[in-house]
Computed example of a mutant assay.
Amino acid sequence: MTDLPNLARRGFLLGGAAAGAGVLLSACTSNEQPQAQTNNNNNVASAQGDNAKPGKMVTIGFSAPAADHGWIAAITKNAKAQADKLKADVTFKPTEGTNDVSQQIAQVETLINGKVDVLVILPFDGKALTSVGQKAMDAGIPVVNLDRVFETALAYRTWIGGDNYRMGVNAGSYIASEMKKKNIASPVIGEVAGIDSLPLTQDRSRGFKDALAKAGFKVGPRVSAEFTVESGEKQTANLLQAANKLDALWNHDDDQGIGVLAAIKSANRSEFIMVGGAGSKNMMDLIKADSSVIKATVLYSPSMSSSAIALARLLGQAKGVGDLAEHEIPASVTTYSAVVTKENVASYADVGFDS
């Protein structure tokens, strides 16, 4: 995700279940050095082997915003669960989550001074924390930049996060498909966005618009909220009052989605389908029950923090990813925004988070 000034939120598990996503990454990565395979006297790169076996001890420092709502809380919970899963060769040193930029900088500096081997940082404000990320890199401590990207790649060794544009594309593509199934030629499609000044919101809306345009549709009534229950309810109420008919609605964020659904219930509206965003357990449960307007949600999964810890371990042990032929950890990893529906919701239950 892109930088999030003034917001303790993104822009992709609960405890033990969350650990699985990151474990998959580490499990496919070996204590053995990569070997070249020969074929007609030509060297051919091979996969890096099984790095799930314990290696040298690695101390991983972790810093994230305050766990004051569902998605961020799940980010922190997943990171801790993954580190515990890897405790045979990982020492985990988390800081207390904070939405105070100066305090987060000070906490990261303490980890740097404590000479951790690797740092995993989800910055409250990517721009503001760029300098401390670069300070760690200059001190020889690799940084895994989680989700909200720093201003320069010099401040991190590896970035892992979600794809906001693809999130919008997949939401729009799902809605377009459903409209065509219903033979609705000119659907009224609403959108409850996040904070419009944020690049992540702009990317999501652009992807949504592009996908609908490809299908010959367009975005109709649109409001922006603030990723909170209260703002979701207020802004959705405004949208519903202005639009006496809807065929579909995309809400960018399942945390604010609680308020969105409350507004829909208060207005006694049910003539449309709704798609959520991020993948909360609450929304997945409703999708599975198929008892409300919510029919799908597009993932932006906090399981990415589990994978970030797995990547940090491999960086600290100078290993690569097992199924890749590259000797080094990739410079960036972008998670995929899968569409969760009634048909596949059971497959994604392990990545659902409590709003």
Results as ranks from 00 to 15, higher is better:
L286F: 11
L261F: 02
F272D: 12
A267H: 02
D255Y: 02
N251Y: 02
V275E: 14
A262C: 02
L249V: 07
V275D: 14
L239C: 05
K265S: 09
G259S: 01
N244H: 13
H252E: 09
G257E: 00
N244R: 14
A237L: 13
N244W: 08
K265L: 05
G277K: 13
R269Q: 10
N282T: 15
A267T: 01
I258W: 00
F272S: 12
D253P: 00
S270T: 13
D247I: 11
L249R: 03
G276H: 10
G277L: 09
M283R: 11
A278C: 10
N244K: 15
A267Y: 00
K281I: 07
S266Q: 11
A262I: 01
D255I: 05
A248Y: 07
N282H: 15
L240Y: 03
S266I: 01
K281T: 12
H252Y: 10
W250N: 04
A262Y: 03
N268Q: 15
E271H: 11
L286A: 15
A262R: 08
I264C: 02
K281F: 08
A243C: 09
G277I: 06
G259Y: 03
A267K: 06
D255G: 01
I264E: 03
K281A: 13
S270G: 14
A267E: 06
M274L: 12
R269H: 08
G279K: 13
L239Q: 02
A263I: 03
E271R: 11
D285S: 12
E271Y: 12
G257Y: 03
F272C: 12
T236P: 05
Q235A: 07
G259E: 00
V260G: 04
I273L: 15
A242S: 15
A262Q: 06
S270K: 15
K245L: 08
L246W: 06
K281C: 05
A263C: 02
G276M: 10
N282F: 15
M283G: 07
K245M: 08
D253E: 03
V275P: 11
G279R: 14
S280L: 07
M274C: 00
S280W: 06
D285Q: 15
G257A: 05
N251H: 01
G277R: 14
A278E: 13
D253S: 01
G277T: 11
I258R: 00
D255H: 04
D254Q: 03
R269S: 07
I258Q: 00
V275W: 14
